[in-house]
Design a protein around this nucleic acid. Structure first.
Lengths: 171, 171
DNA sequence: ACGATTCCTTTGACATTTCAAATATCAGCT
DNA sequence: AGCTGATATTTGAAATGTCAAAGGAATCGT
C-alpha cells in the first residue's frame, strides 16, 4: 500500500513547480529519472535478497565478465561510469569476497588489472541470468516494438546530452 | 586442470545465453541507465559548481517548494524516493544551512514537518530556473516531437515496472 | 483504563558516491 | 643520470544510499 503510493506519487511533481509551466525537456527528464530509480531500486532489492550482492558490484563484474583477460582499474572506471576512487573500494571488497583478483603487470607497475576468478565468473553468470529475467518481467507489459524504438530514441537523447557536457565527453 | 576446463566449457554455454543474444529489454535498460547516469552526473557537477548544492538536496527542496505548508518527513521520503533514514540526514543538513525549518505539530507529536524558509525558497527558485535551462540545453539536439513521445512511452515502461515489483503482490 | 498494535522518525552499521589531494610509476628531455 | 610532466591508483572527507532495529507517540480492542 505504502509502496504503491510511493510509485504513483513521484518526482514528477516538480514539473508544475517553478514557473507554473513545464517545459517538455524537464518533464521527460523527471520521468526518466523516476523510472530509472524505480527499476534500479527493485533490482537492488532483488540482488541483495537473492545473491547478497549490490548493483555497483554487479555492474563492475559485468564488465569483467566480457573481458576474460581483465581490465585496468581506470578502464573499469570509464566503463562503469564510476569514479576512480570508487572503483578502488569496490574492487577491494570483491577481492575480499574472492570474486575478483588483482594483479600488477611487470610492463607497467602503475597499473592494476582486475579480473574475475572462477568463483566470480560462476557467481556473475548466475546473477546475470536472473537479472535478465527480472528485466523482461518488469517490461512485460510494454509492446516489444516500443522497446526497440525506445532504445534508439534514448540513444538520441544520450548523444545530445554528450554533446552539451561542460567537461569531457565519452562513449 | 581438467576440472577448470570443465568449468570453462559450461560457462561458455552460459555466456551465450546471458550476453550473446542480449534481449531487447536488457539493452533498453542498460541504455536508460547510462543515459540517466550521464545526465545526472552533469547536473550534479553544475549544481555543485554554481550553487554548492547536491542533487538530492535539490530534489528535496523541489518537493517543499510545491507545498508551502511543508511536508512530513515520511511524505518527503515517498515523493523523493529516498529512504526514511536518508531523509533525516538530508533535512538536518538543509536545516543547518538555513534553507528549511523543522517543526512538530501539537496534533501529532510523532510527526516532523519540514518546510522551506524564505531564504530556502529564494535559493531553490534560482536553482530551479538554471536546472530547467540545463535540461533544455542538453536535449537541444533532440526533435521536440521525440521528446513528447518519449515521455509517454517511458510512462508505459514505468507502469509496467510498477506492476511487477516484488512488494506489490500483497494488497 | 490498559496492553497490544501501528505509525513516524531516528539511529546504527555499511556500502557507495563525488571531489580533491596525495602517491607511485613511467616516458621524455637535457 | 636527473628533472619534468603525464598517467594510474589510492586515500580522505563529506554526503548519500540501503536496511534493520530501536525509540516515542497515537490508536485500537477489550
Amino acid at each position: 500500500m505504502a509502496e504503491a503510493d510511493a510509485i504513483n506519487v513521484d518526482l514528477e511533481i516538480i514539473v508544475h513547480g517553478v514557473q507554473g509551466r513545464s517545459k517538455p525537456e524537464l518533464r521527460l527528464w523527471l520521468r526518466m529519472l523516476s523510472t530509472t530509480k524505480l527499476i534500479s531500486q527493485e533490482i537492488r532489492r532483488r540482488l541483495r535478497a537473492e545473491f547478497g550482492a549490490t548493483l555497483p558490484q554487479f555492474d563492475l563484474m559485468a564488465q569483467l565478465y566480457r573481458e576474460k583477460d581483465g581490465l585496468r582499474l581506470g578502464e573499469l572506471s570509464k566503463r562503469t561510469m564510476v569514479t576512480n576512487g570508487n572503483v578502488t573500494g569496490l574492487v577491494e571488497r570483491l577481492e575480499a569476497d574472492g570474486y575478483i583478483q588483482r594483479l600488477t603487470p611487470d610492463a607497467d607497475r602503475r597499473v592494476t588489472v582486475a579480473k574475475l576468478t572462477d568463483s566470480g565468473t560462476i557467481f556473475f553468470a548466475t546473477m546475470a541470468a536472473a537479472h535478465e529475467r527480472w528485466l523482461q518481467e518488469m517490461m512485460a507489459d510494454v509492446d516489444p516494438r516500443m522497446i526497440s524504438g525506445l532504445w534508439s530514441e534514448i540513444g538520441a537523447v544520450k548523444v545530445s546530452a554528450s554533446n552539451h557536457l561542460s567537461g569531457a565527453a565519452f562513449e
